[in-house]
Design a binder for these strands. Structure first.
Lengths: 367, 367
DNA sequence: CTGAAAGCGCTTACAG
DNA sequence: CTGAAAGCGCTTACAG
């Protein structure tokens, strides 16, 4: 026997009743499908507004057995850095939560040393046509082209790690480079004597114009933040900048040693990307007294030196949470239809020997 | 005309077919309802296992128009502290995301000065019978009784802010007090000369045995962490502990000044709860040179002094995220049926003049 | 341009 | 102890 009947008073049935049309027509209007006269469309829209109609996402999902798919387009973990492990872990966490909701996530990881591997992965994604894609824009020009293609194919794009002045991207989730430079300045001021010098280092493989442009930008932003800090608080320091275009320890050492010889009284060395461990290794190997070492990102190598006290501070902008939130933002937009803030800066965490365990790779955000 | 028919091969229909029973019987087994013979129950269970049946939560939610309800039982914002604003904001954020999924959240905020207000709120919740409740256990004995009643009523409990040795609570989400003391030690060591003393202060209204027991515990854990740090790194410091059983500035001042007079060379004052601003105010008012000031929690008052440089560091264990994650954990357990880790320590954030804006009240986590 | 009807995979009253 | 059937609020092919 049937159960007691109690029809919802604000579903598409009610809209259809008030508009004196069938629910199929209401459905067409809700989804902006063609084949409805302007007149009835307006009438239905008015009623939808008046009723403040909220679709039942359970019924919607059940009826349209559409499987929603998201894609992830970021670098794979490489010999040079394990940085990208973290965002992937955030993505996996999101996947666990979204799978019961019928959402699947495909990962397309490329080799950040090879632009073609990015483009191949991008092409595959465009063929698969997921509802949304999470990406890290390392190659400026190619990423711009990819995003344009996505917009054309109605694929939503979320950026992590770095932003790009791309129109129509859904949002950027990541750190505020300038502010993180300010924070580095603060720690340096607190932890080193006033008259010491600060050496700011960027260590990364030169991969041609585009890529280095991107890295250059990161370095400059952070450096500007550090300088701004000492200016703001009227505590002038001499700041030396050095760009090392190779990641091998020996190459770094070759450039670093002359600087150390030339400038006595360096109170702090700050590496603006994840390679502070290389510098720490040099000091350890040569057994020379080290200044304060401050770097970015919670990689395994960095943690090792942090534990030993060789590295003093690490800053990080929550790469794992960037991956997690990136996926959740796609879910919120594409499934729940919620509005999304277009720039979401992550808090900058300060990591020391005492709290690193909470930030380590492998720790999941939820559960 | 009907659409093409394509029945799922692993739904309850398929189970029913294989077990040669009706879907109603399968449903009974899935929900552990009575009225099924042991024999058929076993048979159905075996098939469920073999098929690795995963219920379709959309269909489930649609058919059972059950509205899921969660409750929140935490202190209201009081004159003494605005600390509890943060968890509430996390809860509101979660509500935004869960509402489209048909989940509602009722807030029961009590006056932390009055135990009866806690008990009244608790009673209301037991009457309402939500599926789960998020709570902060300030009153040890009363909370224990409440949790027992919840377990009897099949209401899941999630703790934030502090844990309680309650059996059958779903999980605890919050800081690791001992570790946060270690971290404080680290910052103190880096920022103050080796021979200076450290004054550890706890400022809170004495509300009788139970409550003070709770607060005492927090103080001791953090203090132990600080001491352990200096011991571990063989950098002995004299650590003075002071408990002020009143929150008014004058009362604090009256106890603080003699200590300052007695102990010259105090390099750092650390307040183990959110009232470091009271200490900062005293130094500002009397215009006496201040030592390093380190406290906990990002309250408005604390931020004001942090901006001015009167307070040097704040530590916090993400109260907003505690609220957010608390609700999401209930969702994951009660709606998605996911397994939940029973202790979830939050990372301890270090907040300075340079990064406080990312941790301020009012900033939401997602979107 | 519009509508009638089947169906998504469950749950819920019944009847037996 | 068990089953037949209606219904949750949508979407999806059709037919006209």
């Amino acid at each position: 026997m049937p159960r007691k009947d109690k029809t919802a008073l604000n579903g598409i049935k009610e809209i259809a009743r008030q508009a004196r049309v069938s629910i199929a027509t209401v459905d067409r209007v809700i989804h902006n499908r063609t084949g409805v006269s302007e007149k009835t469309k307006e009438k239905i829209k008015a009623i939808i507004g008046a009723l403040n109609y909220q679709p039942n996402i359970f019924a919607r999902q059940l009826a349209s057995r559409k499987k929603i798919e998201f894609a992830v387009l970021i670098p794979q973990v490489s010999a040079a850095t394990s940085y990208w492990k973290a965002p992937i872990e955030g993505v996996l966490q999101a996947e666990k939560e979204l799978m019961p909701l019928g959402i699947s996530i495909s990962r397309y990881l490329y080799d950040q040393q090879h632009k073609e591997s990015f483009n191949q992965a991008a092409k595959k994604i465009l063929k698969k046509k997921p509802a949304g894609v999470l990406l890290a824009p390392l190659f400026v020009k190619d990423t711009t082209a990819f995003v344009k293609a996505c917009v054309a194919a109605k694929i939503q794009c979320v950026f992590i790690d770095a932003d790009l002045p791309a129109e129509n991207r859904l949002c950027y989730i990541g750190g505020d480079l300038y502010q993180s430079g300010m924070l580095a300045g603060h720690l340096i001021k607190y932890s080193t004597p006033d008259k010491t010098k600060v050496l700011v280092l960027n260590i990364s493989d030169d991969l041609g114009e585009q890529n280095s442009q991107n890295l250059q930008h990161r370095l400059l932003q952070k450096e500007a933040g550090i300088r701004a800090y000492f200016e703001k608080y009227k505590s002038p320091r001499q700041i030396i900048t050095l760009v090392v275009p190779k990641t091998e320890a020996l190459a770094v050492e070759k450039q670093l040693l002359p600087i150390l010889a030339e400038h006595k009284n360096i109170g702090c060395i700050c590496v603006t990307n994840s390679r502070i461990s290389t510098v720490a290794g040099i000091f350890e190997k040569r057994k020379i007294p080290k200044p304060m070492l401050l770097g970015y990102d919670v990689t395994e190598a960095n943690i090792d030196y942090l534990k030993k006290g060789t590295i003093d501070f690490l800053l990080c902008d929550k790469p794992q949470e960037q991956g997690y939130r990136g996926m959740m933002v796609l879910y919120q937009r594409l499934v729940l239809g919620l509005p999304i803030e277009s720039i979401q800066f992550m808090p900058i965490d300060i990591i020391t020997r005492e709290n690193y365990m909470y930030y380590q790779e492998g720790r999941t955000l939820l559960q």
